[in-house]
């Protein structure tokens, strides 16, 4: 074999192995969206009409909406549905004073500045970005959360469209 043929073969081998690695990486399980507790937004926000801000208190005063402290769950569930296996999980977190490690569904890249407060105070319904969470048991990402998608709305509503509004 000539030198160039050897190089060719080596290059193909290298490429092949990279493709294998790539496929392996791509075929990683899609993100498991199951939560540590089978919490149902439908029951809370839908059937029982609990306001979003009752639990996600940060949404109106901070950039982050936040997840409720275990104490908020316990407030009701010290009395409500104590026999449910999922609620027993909550009570266990409360008794052991452990935080709940939820799986994040809506995530923005680190270089994006997004303030829940500004949007909530601006009258944007939570559902505009998060979908009809009050209708589903398990939340999944409905909106693409891409820059184009953000800008579309900013344009319609006459919101600022400067780079530094969102890029940090």
């Amino acid at each position: 074999m000539s030198r160039s043929q050897i190089i060719y073969v080596l290059a193909i081998l290298a490429t092949g192995s990279l493709i294998v690695i790539g496929i392996f990486a791509a075929s990683r399980k899609p993100q498991d969206l199951s939560q540590p507790i089978e919490f149902s937004h439908r029951i809370h926000a839908g059937d029982n009409q609990i306001a979003c801000l009752y639990c996600h208190t940060g949404a109106i005063r901070s950039t982050a909406a936040g997840v409720p402290p275990v104490a908020t769950c316990y407030e009701c569930h010290r009395l409500v549905k104590l026999k449910s296996p999922e609620i027993m999980k909550v009570l266990k977190y409360w008794e052991t004073k452990q935080p709940i490690s939820w799986v994040r569904i809506h995530a923005l890249p680190n270089h994006v500045y997004f303030s829940h407060k500004r949007h909530v105070l601006g009258g944007i319904a939570c559902q505009s970005c998060h979908g009809d969470v009050q209708l589903v048991d398990r939340v999944s990402q409905q909106a693409p959360l891409t820059m184009g998608w953000c800008l579309q709305c900013h344009e319609q509503r006459g919101a600022p469209r400067e780079c530094e509004t969102c890029h940090k």
Binding site: I21, Y93, S101, A107
Partner: peptide, 20 residues
């Protein structure tokens, strides 16, 4: 091939407080 599956995703954990 080598870029498939790369990139640092934002943190996938949302950890609650115990007490407000």
């Amino acid at each position: 091939a080598s870029t498939v599956g790369c990139g640092t995703p934002p943190s996938r954990k949302l950890i609650s407080l115990v007490m407000p």
